[in-house]
Simulated scan of single mutants.
Amino acid sequence: MTANQARQTRVLIVGAGAIGGFYGAALQRGGADVSLVCRSEAEVVRQHGYRIESVRRGDSVLRPNQILLSAADYQGGPPDYLVLSVKVVHGLDRVSLIRDAVGPDTAIVLIENGVEIESEIAQAFPANELISALAFVQVSRIAPGVIRHFAFGDLTFGNYPRGLSERSRHFGALLESGGIQCALTEQVVTARWAKCLWNAAFNPASVLGGGLDTEDMLGTPEGEALVRRAMQEVRAVADAAGHSLAPELIDQYIENTRKAPAYKTSMALDYLHRRPMEIEAIIGNAVRAGRRERVDIPTLENLYALLKMVEHKAGKPA
């Protein structure tokens, strides 16, 4: 793939929040023609672009080629890559969000949280290449058209359900050219379970503590012990499902979290701003997998049940 061909790669991002904007800016730096479906902030982004603030990486501005209200408005033929980076929440029809822009040669890229989230898209678009990606990043939308990057930023991805194609490699090359480190894997489902080690422990605890940040959660022996128990149960479920994870990952994740700046999880931010939370994708699917594989998961079961209570209360009229 020549530099000129790379510059002409067309990418449509559906879900231009913190994740979509952050990686969209990297793809644009890497030479891609990037467009966004950006409904609530469309006018702000048209006028000023999407500003990414980062002490670690430097500030940048994403100026999309097209700023759209829906995927159906995309002009110039189907994109080479359609990146779906919406939150996987109950009641959201992800298929309908992207269907009108997916062409026969469009590769669909999921940069989303959770485990066992790909099948809905794979069943709807069986002829399209599906790339599943996991973002290891601390980034938040802090104002309309403004994203703040706190730490990390690496992506791990590969083809679903397994394998690694040339199109995946080209997508990684674009991101690498834009400053993002990419780990390509032929076993992306196993990689999703590895990320679930962190997500299924820290996200629920952050909400159930009323919006705790990572420093709060690891600040007491009891807090760290809870996080470790949840991680150990996720590892047991993954192993039973055929996706063995190295035991040292737990220590590694906790140590890396300690080193990073104190950070509120995405679920904590959604809870504090009264937005729908990714409960099912992040922990519900892990719990159901544990039940299916007949693994004893008392900590995950309790975290999930308590989260559902919080969700139920949040849904009541004020």
Rank of each mutant, 00 (worst) to 15 (best):
Met1Glu: 13
Thr2Phe: 00
Asn4Met: 11
Arg7Thr: 10
Arg10Leu: 00
Tyr23Arg: 05
Ala25Pro: 05
Leu27Gly: 01
Gln28Glu: 07
Arg29Leu: 01
Leu36Glu: 02
Arg39Ala: 02
Glu41Asp: 08
Glu41Arg: 14
Val45Ile: 03
Gly49Asp: 01
Arg51Cys: 07
Ile52Gly: 00
Ser54Gly: 04
Val55Gln: 15
Arg57Ser: 15
Ser70Asn: 12
Asp73Ser: 13
Val88Gly: 06
His90Ala: 06
His90Arg: 14
Leu92Ile: 09
Asp93Thr: 14
Val102Thr: 07
Ile108Asn: 03
Val109Ser: 12
Leu110Met: 15
Glu116Ile: 14
Glu118Gln: 09
Glu120Tyr: 09
Ala124Thr: 09
Asn128Val: 06
Ile131Leu: 13
Ile131Cys: 05
Ala133Leu: 05
Leu134Thr: 15
Val139Tyr: 03
Arg141Leu: 15
Ile142Ser: 09
Ala143Asp: 13
His149Met: 09
Phe157Pro: 08
Asn159Arg: 13
Asn159His: 02
Asn159Gly: 08
Arg162Val: 11
Arg167Cys: 10
Ala173Tyr: 07
Ser177Pro: 12
Gly178Glu: 09
Cys182Gly: 08
Cys182Asp: 08
Ala183Met: 12
Thr185Ser: 02
Gln187His: 08
Val189Trp: 00
Trp193Arg: 04
Lys195Gln: 10
Lys195Met: 05
Cys196Lys: 03
Asn199Tyr: 08
Ala201Lys: 10
Ser206Glu: 06
Gly211Ala: 03
Asp213Arg: 14
Thr214Asn: 14
Thr214Tyr: 13
Leu218Asn: 11
Leu218Pro: 11
Thr220Cys: 03
Glu224Met: 11
Ala230Pro: 04
Met231Ser: 01
Glu233Met: 08
Arg235Trp: 08
Ala240Glu: 04
Gly242His: 08
Leu245Tyr: 00
Pro247Asn: 12
Pro247Ile: 06
Leu249Met: 07
Thr257Tyr: 01
Arg258Ser: 05
Lys259Asp: 14
Ser266Asn: 02
Asp270Thr: 06
His273Tyr: 14
Arg274Gln: 14
Arg275Asn: 02
Arg275Thr: 07
Pro276Phe: 07
Glu278His: 14
Ile279Pro: 08
Glu280Cys: 04
Gly284Asn: 02
Gly290Gln: 09
Asn302Asp: 15
Ala305Asp: 11
Lys308Tyr: 05
Met309Glu: 04
Met309Val: 07
His312Met: 12
Ala314Ile: 12
Pro317Asn: 05
Ala318Arg: 10
